[in-house]
């Protein structure tokens, strides 16, 4: 019962946020920012605790797992494109994951983050279920990692299009790979706004980033 209520309320607020965002298209109204804010306001007014809400909306967060499985479909359908661009994808994402981890590590040191925060923030640029797994493996706190993954998604959804514009990135492959690499699923849903090709490359970037980060994570735990 509670699950049904929270799921439906979240879904309606999500639809509303998407509608508002479509009308105003201001970065601050991104659905991943607006919907949670509206929900936080709503649960505060109705005296529902955050943990009660999290319990009640479990069905929705659970859907990330079958959604990850679902990415087999675009991979299968675009096998020809993958074969054609495998080199570009592999090189870009290997460099992307390295830059993500190194820049995150250096900036964490710069703002004097504690060690458990640092290991929790390292896998932030990859999709949640996999980031949590990597975090666990390298000794981070999975729940904290989820928070960083979400902030990364919001940040990427907002600054991603601007970065692509500033650097005058033209090709669908570069746009797609950058969005999927930089902001996982959120970037991929942004890529869908650009076009079909962009979204394919973005999903591929997401999957490759997850796989390659797993490799880095394994190496990191083996040698440190």
């Amino acid at each position: 019962m509670i699950i049904a209520v929270f799921t439906i309320v979240t879904y309606l607020i999500y639809l509303l946020s998407k509608k508002i965002y479509k009308k105003v298209t201001i970065a601050a109204f991104h659905p991943l920012l607006l919907a949670p804010i509206l929900l936080i306001v709503l649960i505060t007014i109705t005296h529902v605790s955050a943990n009660q809400y999290l319990q009640g909306s479990k069905l929705l967060s659970h859907m990330l797992a079958p959604a990850t499985v679902a990415f087999a479909v675009p991979i299968y359908k675009n096998l020809a494109i993958i074969k054609k661009y495998l080199g570009t994808i592999a090189v870009s994402i290997t460099i992307g994951t390295l830059v993500a981890m190194v820049s995150t590590f250096l900036l964490s040191k710069l703002i004097h983050l504690s060690d458990d925060f640092i290991v929790s923030i390292l896998p932030r640029s990859i999709t949640t279920p996999i980031a949590m797994e990597v975090s666990k493996e390298i000794g981070g706190l999975p729940a904290l990692t989820t928070v960083f993954v979400i902030i990364t998604g919001i940040a990427g959804g907002i600054v991603g299009p601007k970065v692509l514009k500033w650097l005058s990135i033209k090709t669908p492959i570069a746009k797609g790979l950058a969005l999927g690499m930089g902001a996982h699923g959120v970037g991929t849903s942004k890529a869908l706004e650009y076009g079909k090709q962009e979204s394919v490359f973005s999903s591929l970037a997401m999957i490759f980033a997850a796989l390659i980060t797993l490799v880095w994570g394994t190496l990191l735990t083996t040698f440190i």
Partner: peptide, 14 residues
């Protein structure tokens, strides 16, 4: 895949 954002919302509230 189209509604991926929806599944991130509970964690964002968290």
């Amino acid at each position: 895949m189209a509604e991926l954002l929806l599944f991130f919302i509970p964690s964002a509230v968290g």
